[in-house]
């Protein structure tokens, strides 16, 4: 205790303490140098302050432990828990939104496919109708044209027949005229007609 006395004096508070703590009369050294030169005055090994250090460590560490356990750590733990929950919730929401989006996409694609097939069938039907109409129209025109053609041929045949008939008449008239004028032969109409018919055969 004697050597450590010097340290106590360095603190400048020794004189406030009861003298029985030190067990030695107040002896003034030259401060810490003098004490450390004695070789045993190394403060960390000085038992003088052991009780004080242990007591204050117990008080401060006890209070620290109690504060952390009851106030600080529930607080931090709560924050972390809160964040974990929030992240889980957000992930869940994101997952839900994604499934919604997938569903919407599936519906959309289905509707698109339906619309496409409907459009296809409409186009097909329209094409079919148009084709049928065209066919009908063509047939109608065909028959009409055929009818006109037949009519025309009949007319042509009639014209041709009447023309041929007229040619016979002309031939008979020419023959009659030639016989009368050139040969001065008076032939009957029947004979001329028979002769003309004989040559044109």
């Amino acid at each position: 205790m004697f050597v450590t006395q010097a340290y106590a004096q360095d603190g400048g508070t020794t004189e406030h303490l009861p003298s029985e703590v030190h067990g030695a009369p107040e002896t003034h050294h030259q401060g810490s140098i003098a004490a450390s030169e004695h070789g045993t005055g190394f403060p960390p090994f000085d038992p003088e302050f052991y009780p004080s250090q242990i007591l204050w460590l117990a008080i401060t560490f006890g209070v620290f432990y109690w504060l952390l356990k009851t106030v600080i750590m529930p607080r931090i733990g709560g924050i972390l828990e809160n964040r974990r929950d929030r992240i889980a919730l957000d992930l869940e929401a994101a997952e839900r939104m994604r499934s919604d989006a997938d569903e919407a996409k599936a519906t959309y694609e289905q509707e698109l496919a339906e619309a496409r097939s409907r459009a296809h069938s409409i186009a097909h039907g329209a094409k079919e109708t148009a084709r049928e109409d065209a066919e009908k129209e063509r047939k109608r025109l065909d028959t009409e044209l055929n009818a006109r053609l037949d009519e025309a041929q009949i007319r042509i045949a009639g014209v041709k027949r009447s023309a041929l008939g007229e040619v016979d008449q002309i031939a008979r008239d020419v023959t009659d005229t030639i016989l009368r004028e050139v040969a001065s032969i008076e032939a009957s109409q029947d004979e001329i007609a028979g002769a003309v018919a004989q040559t044109s055969r």
């Binding site: 508070t13 403060p43 003088e48 302050f49 009780p51 004080s52 204050w56 401060t60």
Partner: peptide, 23 residues
């Protein structure tokens, strides 16, 4: 730097529980 000094001297019985710079 390792020296302990009393700030508030506290004496209980034979024990020195002073409030020091360490405390």
């Amino acid at each position: 730097q390792f020296q302990i000094t009393r700030i508030v001297p506290i004496q209980i019985g034979d024990w020195d529980f002073s409030f020091t710079n360490s405390a």
